[in-house]
Write a protein that binds this DNA or RNA. Structure first.
Lengths: 246, 246
DNA sequence: CAGTGGTCTAGACCACCAC
DNA sequence: TGGTGGTCTAGACCACTGG
């Protein structure tokens, strides 16, 4: 790649934008115009820094950011390449139930059905916590309502060591998810979304006919990869829809 | 801030991790432990680089990345501070079915059940296209399979003016969504996700017992706000789960 | 004013890759 | 083996902030 692809970049003495920004925009323009196509190799950091008479670190910053933004990909020892154009992938947000109702300004109430030390913690640890230790667990069953309409039934296990005061909570202002999130700033989480047909007790709890489906959300909370809570949440599908963002 | 907050970082000669990573983790740990709280000021880049006897650029990279990740915020001329803990809102991606199977390296086949000019376009325009004009529409019914297992049933209406060659497509390599996306670079889209219990014809098509729920996705494709396609897609819930990307 | 972060330089060493 | 990107250094100048 000996072609001078960057020579028409504005002079180094134009300080309206930082140099790495100018490089980024120049590259994006080439890609947008189709001048550089997917999987095509870009000039190396050394070539560009030599051509523009700037430091390699500056070129590196431009390349690194464009890579993080998904426009390029890099291979150690090989080079930097134009990435495949990406598609708009729609996604659905899932907010904690209390947060969601609060945002919409709806009243929120919770009915604690059970809140106790778990009996069969050994089995639960093995099944849901990926742990062979018999760790001590709390168990809760909560029904969250919008005004008087059930919106979510949740059963949850929590490590007692993580949330020692869990049993004293009323979950009046915040749902269990939000409560646990406040306990640690470094909580991470995984969710799985399924669709199910509720069994009879569940449909009675949620006050829906058993001809109606439910969303089932499995929520796993982790700290540095260790599971500290496992929950299953059920939403009546008639009262809950996901709308895509983007 | 004269306290030596970083002195217990592993020696510079430990090359198991890049230095900026070690700094990042050290900072995250302090935040996690509550040692540094929200809005608290961190030592400056200069202080840390002096204390650890490393370059300021290395500290800068750690700070910059933690800021991009939302853990810190910075103010020019003032300093670097711990950010408010943020809530992780999980979201679920919905990829076009052919793209999803391609990524997972699965075989993909499609069975076109119907592909024709729509009969009752006037009603359809009014109901789904927010249009009182009687615009000409194509109609398709397609069953997408992974190997021989049905994965998605889709019915779709498309403006004939947008996709004049729609009837000649076989949808062997790309599903209808991807085909339509290739026709215009400025397509936007809206999706709605519901859970339903399938009726008998649908459960037969998808080859599932009628005790099993389905995801129903409504996909609306638009160009500059004008709807050009309306589709309903049904996924058997037993064969399809959404996993959150945080 | 002194200190801060934002940017940039002109080198350097390394692991990795293609040849 | 020579080129690539990943990382790091020891300086530097600037605009901006706070006291």
């Amino acid at each position: 790649m000996t072609v001078k692809s960057f020579s028409n970049i504005l002079s180094t003495h134009d300080h309206s934008l930082p140099m790495y920004q100018k490089i980024k925009e120049h590259i994006l323009e080439k890609i947008a115009k189709g001048e550089w196509r997917a999987n095509q190799k870009l000039p190396s950091e050394n070539e560009i820094s030599a051509e523009l008479n700037i430091s390699r670190m500056t070129v590196n910053r431009a390349f690194k950011e464009l890579t993080e933004e998904g426009y390029l990909f890099r291979e150690k020892g090989a080079g930097t390449f134009v990435a495949e154009p990406f598609q708009l992938i729609p996604f659905f947000e899932l907010m904690p139930i209390s947060k969601e109702l609060a945002i919409e300004g709806n009243p929120f109430s919770s009915q604690v059905l059970r809140l106790e030390k778990a009996q069969d913690s050994h089995k639960i640890c093995e099944r849901y916590f990926e742990s062979r230790d018999n760790e001590s667990l709390f168990f809760s069953e909560i029904l969250y309502k919008n005004e008087k309409t059930p919106l979510q039934y949740e059963k949850r296990y929590v490590l007692t060591t993580f949330a020692p005061h869990y049993l004293t909570q009323a979950f009046h202002k915040a749902c269990s998810t939000v409560y646990l999130q406040t306990l640690s700033p470094i909580l991470s989480q995984k969710h799985t979304l399924e669709a199910i047909i509720p069994n009879k007790p569940l449909s009675q709890l949620l006050e829906i006919p058993n001809t109606e489906a439910c969303f089932k959300v499995v929520e796993i909370l982790l700290i540095r990869g260790k599971i500290i809570s496992y929950a299953e949440q059920f939403y009546p599908a008639s009262r809950y829809k996901f709308h895509s963002k983007i």
